[in-house]
Write a protein that binds this DNA or RNA. Structure first.
Length: 665
DNA sequence: CAGCTTATGGTGAAATTTGG
DNA sequence: CCAAATTTCACCATAAGCTG
């Protein structure tokens, strides 16, 4: 396979592989363009993450060559070995990490330039320099910073040990690879004791600090996103057509919009503010909002990470045949996972799948349609494109210049700005709705981090496995689809996130059941058993662990955890799970270890495990109303009969839960 | 199999780039 | 020169992989 083996595998006098000018940058990818001698190593192709900006996987040596010539050879050798030479203690690293390491190296070199300009190369470096750098990293304020061209400046006066550690990693690597370098360090940093532990990094990890989006924020977002997809999309598409026609026309001035955004058919508000803005800005702003609307729906209801969404192909959606039912009744999105990737072939991680509800499929289809012309224009296959893809191309032979990466992927940082811009619009619309509808209040000022969607979904599923999203989607379909969606990517930690949230929710539920019981509600046998246990647990001085259910998460004792795990939350019932009489499981499933309730098979009114409390009555009432409405339209006798049976069933449940012989007095 | 290191994804915000 | 949108870099968080 390797025609160049002769010079690729060149060995030095110690019998080790070493690079020279014509060596490929990556031995396992000799087809890559660059060679060791080149001043730019472009590893973009080897990066599976298409949403990542190009500069992240491009290593530009020109800066080192110009400002720190004595270091150039060492930096390149180190980087090459990091990419190609596995050691006993160090495996080879990916292009992303290799580039990041060189960025950190550059920061060190900048610092040396300021503090010790006499250190011209690795041979001049001493332990005291390394130590001084470490102290500087640990404790330096903005006034002390060594500024780079370009970007972020220090704000604080200290940083975390793990950050210090990662900035010292290139120096550690110089030590680890000393045998391979033509001019190794003349000493071993801290006598070989430069470790994460020494720097205090890796201390006990803290709680998950990503807070879920507040209810008002997510409600505002989802509501507005849904309106964009359902009602405003045709207007936005018409604007796109008009703008493209103008481009083709070749006229100098935009003649003015023919498309008029009528009032919102649902709320009656003017949904697009009337601004004096250049047409091409207006058009891209609205297209951007529509993209954001789809993105929000996808992120919130699939549990994807932002980076995974930006990595999706335009043909990621399909409708597989359900093996159990033979029907094509579920939507599936396939993509590349960012974490827990596994090995896969050719370094490419195997795809994962998310099962998603209808509205997510709609959002994906909208993106497919909305961005189709730009995909054709820029030769991209990605589902989402950055806003720069929406600009007018300069001419046939010249591409747009802003993005240095071909195809205009939507980077993760851009997702952030897109979403926050959209939230501003959603708030603006909500203000307008509040003018006419006094029951609607204003949305809070809030900065959204894209990763919060995933966390918010975890909480949502945990609290309402039978829930109704935004009051709009059908109960059964969504709950099972979303639930299976996360179960489908079981290798992910998402299931664990959900479980943690569920346990916290379970504590709320137990407390609620307890106060219901104290108010005179008579629980069934299953619930009484659990409540009695709960009283015990509360007694045993777990108050501190249990009372704090608010944010950072209570540190749960195992006994609490176990107890809470038997209680499952639902908006139709609680399930006090007890394997032996669970109606949702077959005999075979019951006997398997770790059996848990099958949400989609639940029959809350029949199962002995199920507890229907007063707070569930409204949902059951809703089901009853629905059945009565249908009874009016039913045609055949059997249809009417089955509806009557259902109605009786629901009436019985309601009577049992709220009054009659089994409820409050 | 816990505790550590290593590898890598994510976020905030200033600086830069680009079209006009 | 202006405004918009991205890139860049510092900082942060967490998963994967070793090792004893």
């Amino acid at each position: 396979m390797n025609a160049h083996a002769g010079h690729i595998r060149a060995q030095d006098e110690r019998g080790q592989r070493s690079p020279h000018g014509e060596s490929p940058i990556l031995l396992r990818r000799p087809d890559l363009k660059g060679r060791f001698g080149a001043m730019v190593w472009d590893l973009t192709e080897t990066d599976h993450h298409s949403g990542r900006v190009e500069s992240i996987c491009r290593i530009d040596w020109n800066d080192v060559a110009a400002n720190h010539p004595g270091w150039l050879a060492t930096c390149k050798e180190l980087c090459w070995h990091r990419l190609n030479t596995p050691l006993a203690t160090q495996k080879t690293i990916g292009s992303y990490h290799a580039s990041r390491e060189q960025l950190r190296m550059k920061r060190f070199l900048r610092w040396l330039d300021v503090k010790h300009p006499d250190v011209a190369g690795p041979l001049d470096l001493r332990q005291r320099h390394v130590h001084e750098y470490r102290v500087w990293l640990e404790n330096h304020g903005p006034e002390d910073a060594v500024n780079a061209s370009g970007a972020n400046v220090r704000t604080g006066s200290s940083c975390s040990p793990q950050t210090v550690w990662s900035y010292l990693l290139p120096i550690k690597a110089l030590d680890v690879f000393r045998e391979r370098l033509s001019s190794p360090l003349p000493f071993s940093p801290y006598d070989g004791n430069l470790t994460a532990k020494m720097l205090g990094a890796g201390e006990t990890s803290e709680e998950n600090t990503t807070e879920p989006l507040p209810d008002e924020v997510i409600a505002t977002l989802i509501d507005c996103a849904r309106r964009y997809i359902e009602h405003y999309a045709p207007t936005v598409l018409a604007m796109r057509e008009e703008m493209h026609a103008f481009w083709d026309d070749g006229r100098a001035d935009f003649p003015g919009w023919k498309t008029k955004p009528g009032p919102c058919p649902e709320t009656g508000i003017t949904w697009m503010p009337d601004r004096k803005k250049a047409a091409h800005h207006l058009y891209r702003e609205e297209l951007g909002h529509l993209v954001a609307a789809c993105l929000i729906v996808i992120l919130y209801l699939s549990g994807m990470r932002p980076g995974e969404a930006s990595n999706l192909d335009s043909d990621c959606l399909d409708r597989p045949v359900d093996r159990a039912t033979g029907l094509r009744d579920r939507w599936r999105i396939s993509g590349i996972p960012l974490k827990k990737r596994g090995k896969g072939k050719e370094g490419k991680p195997p795809p994962v799948e998310w099962v998603v509800p209808d509205i997510v499929a709609q959002a994906v289809q909208m993106l497919q349609k909305l961005l189709a012309p730009y995909r054709a224009m820029h030769g991209s296959d990605l589902l989402m494109l950055s806003k720069d893809a929406l600009r007018k191309p300069k001419s046939r032979d010249r591409k747009l210049q802003r993005s240095s990466k071909t195809g205009y992927p939507l980077s993760v940082t851009s997702i952030g700005s897109l979403v926050n811009l959209f939230y501003e619009r959603a708030r603006w619309q909500r203000d307008a709705i509040a003018q006419t509808d006094p029951s609607v209040n204003q949305a809070p000022d809030y900065h959204i981090k894209p990763s919060q969607f995933r966390r918010t979904l975890a909480r949502f599923i945990a609290r309402q496995p039978f829930g109704i999203i935004a009051g709009r989607l059908q109960y059964h379909h969504v709950s099972t689809a979303v639930f299976e969606g996360y179960a489908g990517s079981i290798s992910d930690t998402f299931a664990l996130d959900v479980e943690d949230e569920r346990i916290l929710a379970g504590i709320d539920i137990l407390e609620e059941m307890r106060s219901d019981a104290r108010a005179g509600w008579r629980a069934g046998p299953g619930a009484s058993r659990v409540l009695a246990e709960w009283e015990n647990v509360r007694e045993v001085g777990l108050a501190s662990a249990v009372v704090d259910t608010s944010s950072k998460g209570a540190v749960l004792d195992n006994s609490v955890r176990k107890l809470v795990q038997t209680v499952h939350v639902g908006s139709l019932s609680y399930c006090v799970f007890n394997v032996s009489n669970a109606l949702c499981l077959t005999e075979q499933e019951k006997s398997s270890p770790g059996a848990s309730p099958a949400i989609s098979m639940c029959s809350p009114d029949k199962c002995a495990n199920s507890v229907i409390a007063p707070c569930h009555v409204p949902k059951w009432q809703g089901l009853l109303d629905e059945v009565r409405r249908l009874t009016g339209t039913a045609r055949s006798g059997p249809q009417k009969q089955s509806l009557r049976t259902a109605a009786e069933r629901y009436e019985g449940v309601i009577a049992k839960a709220q009054g009659g012989g089994n409820g409050k007095d």
